Amino acid sequence: MRFETKIAVLLRDDLAGWQRLNATAFLASGVAAQWPQLVGEPYADADGTSYLGMLGQPVLILEGDAELLRAAHERALRRELTVGVFTADLFRTGNDDDNRAAVAAVARDQLDLVGLAVHGPKNAVDKVLKGARMHP
Rank of each mutant, 00 (worst) to 15 (best):
L69H: 07
N95P: 02
A107S: 13
V39N: 06
A25Y: 01
D109I: 07
G30Y: 05
A25F: 01
D96V: 13
T5D: 11
L27W: 03
L27M: 07
D45V: 02
A102C: 09
L129M: 12
A105T: 10
H119F: 06
L55V: 13
Q34R: 14
A104F: 07
L10R: 01
A124R: 12
L113G: 00
A23F: 01
L52I: 09
D97F: 09
A132G: 05
R92G: 12
L113F: 06
L81K: 06
D65N: 14
D14Y: 08
V114C: 11
S29H: 13
H119C: 11
L27V: 05
L62F: 05
H135V: 00
L68Y: 07
F3W: 13
T5H: 12
G115H: 02
L10E: 09
A66I: 08
L55R: 03
L55N: 01
A71D: 14
K122S: 08
D45A: 02
D45L: 04
A124C: 00
Y43H: 11
A76P: 01
A8F: 08
K130L: 13
N123Y: 09
G64W: 08
D97H: 09
F86S: 01
M1F: 09
G40H: 05
D13C: 05
G115E: 03
T82F: 07
T24C: 06
Q110G: 00
A102T: 06
V114I: 14
R70Q: 15
A101C: 06
R79E: 14
Q110H: 12
Q110D: 15
E41W: 00
R92D: 15
R100D: 12
Q110K: 13
K122N: 10
L38K: 02
N123G: 06
V128M: 08
N22T: 02
T93F: 03
D112E: 13
A33F: 14
D45T: 03
L10K: 01
H135G: 00
L68C: 05
E63Y: 02
A46W: 10
R75P: 09
A33D: 11
V103I: 15
R12N: 02
R133N: 08
A71P: 00
E41Y: 01
G56I: 11
Y51A: 08
D65R: 01
I61C: 06
D126T: 10
P136T: 03
Q57V: 13
Q57G: 00
V118T: 06
